[in-house]
Computed example of a mutant assay.
Amino acid sequence: MKDIYFAGGCFWGTEHFFKLLRGVKETEVGYANGHTTSPTYEEVYTDTTGFAETVHVTYDENVTDLTFLLQMFFKAIDPLSLNKQGNDIGTRYRTGIYYTDKDDLPAIQEAMKAEQRRYTAPLAVEVEPLQNFYRAEEYHQDYLEKNPNGYCHLPIELFRMAKMTNDEK
Rank of each mutant, 00 (worst) to 15 (best):
K25L: 10
E26K: 14
T27P: 08
T27D: 03
E28T: 11
V29C: 01
Y31F: 10
A32Y: 02
N33R: 07
N33G: 10
H35C: 07
S38F: 08
P39R: 04
Y41H: 13
Y41I: 04
E43K: 11
E43N: 11
V44D: 09
V44R: 05
V44G: 10
T48H: 03
T48C: 10
T49A: 10
G50R: 07
G50M: 08
A52Q: 14
E53A: 08
E53G: 02
T54I: 00
V55H: 08
V55P: 08
H56S: 10
V57C: 09
T58E: 03
T58N: 05
D60V: 06
D60Q: 01
D60R: 03
E61R: 12
E61D: 15
N62G: 12
N62A: 15
V63P: 08
V63I: 15
T64C: 12
T64K: 04
T64P: 09
D65G: 13
L66I: 09
F68E: 10
L69Y: 14
L69T: 03
L70F: 00
L70Y: 00
L70S: 11
Q71Y: 07
Q71N: 12
M72P: 08
F74W: 05
K75G: 01
I77T: 00
I77K: 01
I77Q: 08
D78W: 00
D78V: 00
P79E: 07
S81L: 03
S81Q: 10
L82I: 13
K84L: 12
K84R: 15
K84Y: 13
G86E: 00
N87D: 14
I89P: 11
G90T: 07
G90R: 10
G90M: 11
T91I: 12
T91N: 08
T91K: 14
T91F: 00
Y93R: 04
R94A: 08
G96R: 06
Y98E: 04
Y98W: 11
Y99M: 06
T100Q: 14
D101F: 09
P106F: 06
I108N: 03
Q109H: 15
E110S: 15
E110Y: 15
E110Q: 15
E110D: 14
M112S: 02
K113L: 13
K113P: 03
E115I: 07
Q116W: 03
Q116T: 00
Q116I: 02
T120R: 01
T120L: 09
A121H: 13
A121F: 05
A121D: 14
V125D: 11
V127S: 04
V127D: 02
E128S: 13
E128F: 04
P129G: 14
P129A: 15
L130S: 05
L130M: 04
Q131W: 12
Q131R: 07
N132M: 05
N132R: 03
Y134N: 03
R135A: 04
A136W: 05
E137V: 07
Y139H: 09
D142L: 03
D142T: 11
Y143D: 04
Y143P: 10
Y143C: 09
K146S: 05
P148M: 02
P148I: 04
G150C: 12
Y151E: 09
C152W: 01
L154H: 06
P155W: 04
E157I: 02
E157F: 06
L158G: 13
L158M: 07
L158E: 13
R160N: 15
M161S: 11
M161R: 13
A162R: 06
A162C: 04
K163R: 15
T165I: 09
